[in-house]
Design a protein around this nucleic acid. Structure first.
Lengths: 334, 334
DNA sequence: TTGAAAGCGCTAACAC
DNA sequence: GTGTTAGCGCTTTCAA
């Protein structure tokens, strides 16, 4: 069962292969008579362009590589949604790879993407292995690093300071007169670590360096994990006055545990989350959080890629700090 | 800036191109001396295989096409996770495309995947356009349809009866003596529609055909939408005895709204969701739901693809009903 | 507007 | 174990 090729279509339509190719790529360059004949032949044979051959011959992949640490997180889903929205519209294919939060897997992902001759790489995070960084630089394609700010961007950097955001969340609790503040987290990826750093700095600034409480269970973040983390503290008889969760999911889990045990929020305990996921506003009590801009990050990344690809000159280093916003709600009222 | 090719590596290493190719693909077939020289040259030049050329020459893409309606839903994230886990391990690349719940976009996605000469297609859903179906059949690659059961599978079908699941959820409420049962939904995609059908049948069987209440706002499912749907009913003064939500997110939104207005669960109202998302068990009250097997669906789909690709003979039609499970919890306790 | 020739970078098949 | 030859199916370039 040989696959149908351009030549087959050309034979059936009685034209040369290149004419078929033109009909498919720039129909306006072909006279209507031939175009109609070719289109009929394409339909009749069910011809579909062989992308590998097309890419090889044109040395253009029309593909853009995207590396995310996980697909298992609504944050990245929103970001990918924005990337898709913009880039697909412009005729690009996205090749999405997840690195499972591993720099080694990220390195392999980069190699795989370069093998695909992607025309740009959009990568979550700013920390890479030495080889990864070298490959990204040598690739001579636009590279966008996202979600964090880099001291030394490879090319384009679109992000926010996770540390300042962690600091702001902690500061918000401190400003309410709360002193015993716990930090709840699952796996400490780079960004969670930065938020923790921000927490540490805020605590220290408040003269509470000795009072840091870090509850951590190395599992991926989830509502259930939030419940577990909270339970553990409660069973130890070690409940703090306030909790800063790296993630709204953890916060929701903690809140559910509070409710179960008649612990009032914010009277007995204040809780703040991170990311301002869509349920935060309609939780009960509504959940204070730090709003982050995933969609905008993706959208801007996509637009910058398009701009770079259209630019004749190689763009230099650019940084965009998209910031974050503290969203105080009932869970830390008072 | 010409890209480094196999020939460059071969020249540097002083061997023929095919030897370099062998070192990269089947190192055991090359003597150690040459292998080391080639590997050194590869590293020195930072060579990465051009996938397009490789695919064209070998006429193997090592790519598997995956079509999902959205990336914006944890259900599909779990499913993709399983697909990744199995298939990447076996040296395949996944090309994931979303159809945004549109059969036309699905058709385009199929064409795009066939253009990539994917070696198999794994597609969520069993309803396709006539052309889509024809293309899938003509492609002569393994095709796996998932999440639903088909009366006429193209090749392999791994799913569950959404209608029976909807029926079971409704039946559960009826069994508790509840009669005024509302169905809450966002966009009515195929699967939501089937659940609604199941609800309708159960209501009719109970002699309650005239009492169907369907609350629907055509937005994508979310916690906020659940709150909105519930609010609308409440403001109309039309609260039912029980609610069946197409989705645990909607249920969570409804629950939050109940709590806000002092409506007790399950005393004043019973709520059941769908999918048994991970927060359902730790919600307060814990949320009854229908557990579905996203991970297992993905895993089995991946395994069946591998089996088909390894099989010498073309496999026939196979159907796997993975079923579902009613998980009764506090929100519908009797 | 259309076509002929050449080649993109790799690998299968065959020879040595 | 290693190399030679001949494509894979397109698109680019240049000529008509």
């Amino acid at each position: 069962m040989r696959r149908v090729t351009l030549d087959d279509v050309a034979n059936l339509a009685g034209v040369s292969p290149i004419t078929v190719s033109r009909v498919l790529r720039k129909p306006d360059a072909v006279s209507q008579g031939l175009r109609l004949r070719v289109e009929a032949a394409v339909t009749e044979l069910g011809y579909v362009t062989n992308v590998a051959a097309s890419r090889l011959a044109s040395s253009r992949s029309h593909a853009i590589g995207v590396i995310v640490p996980t697909l298992y997180n609504v944050i990245f889903a929103e970001y990918l949604f924005a990337l898709h929205e913009v880039l697909i519209e412009h005729g690009f294919q996205l090749i999405v790879v997840n690195s499972r939060y591993s720099e080694i897997e990220e390195e392999n992902a980069i190699k795989a993407l370069l093998g695909q001759r992607v025309e740009a790489i959009i990568i979550a995070g700013v920390n890479h292995t030495t080889l990864s960084r070298q490959l990204l630089i040598q690739a001579h394609v636009p590279v966008v690093e996202t979600f964090e700010l880099s001291a030394d961007p490879i090319n384009i950097n679109i992000g926010m300071s996770q540390e300042l955001a962690g600091h702001a969340a902690t500061r918000h609790l401190l400003d309410r007169g709360l002193r015993r503040i716990a930090f709840l987290t699952g796996n400490l990826d780079r960004r969670a670590q930065s938020r923790l750093d921000g927490y540490g700095i805020a605590m220290e600034e408040a003269g509470l360096a000795g009072m840091n409480v870090i509850a951590r269970i190395p599992r991926h973040s989830s509502v259930a994990l939030g419940s577990d983390l909270f339970s553990e503290m409660r069973l130890r008889g070690d409940l703090p006055e306030a909790i800063f969760c790296t993630d709204d999911n953890l916060a929701l889990g903690a809140m559910q545990e509070c409710r179960k045990h008649g612990i009032r929020m914010p009277d007995d305990i204040s809780i703040i989350g991170f990311h301002d996921l869509e349920f935060a506003a309609c939780a009960s009590p509504s959940l204070s959080s730090i709003a982050t801009r995933r969609y905008e990050t993706g959208k801007l990344a996509a637009e910058k890629v398009l701009a770079s690809l259209n630019a004749s000159t190689k763009s230099g280093v650019e940084t965009f700090d998209l910031g974050f916003a503290l969203v105080p709600r009932e869970s830390t009222a008072g």
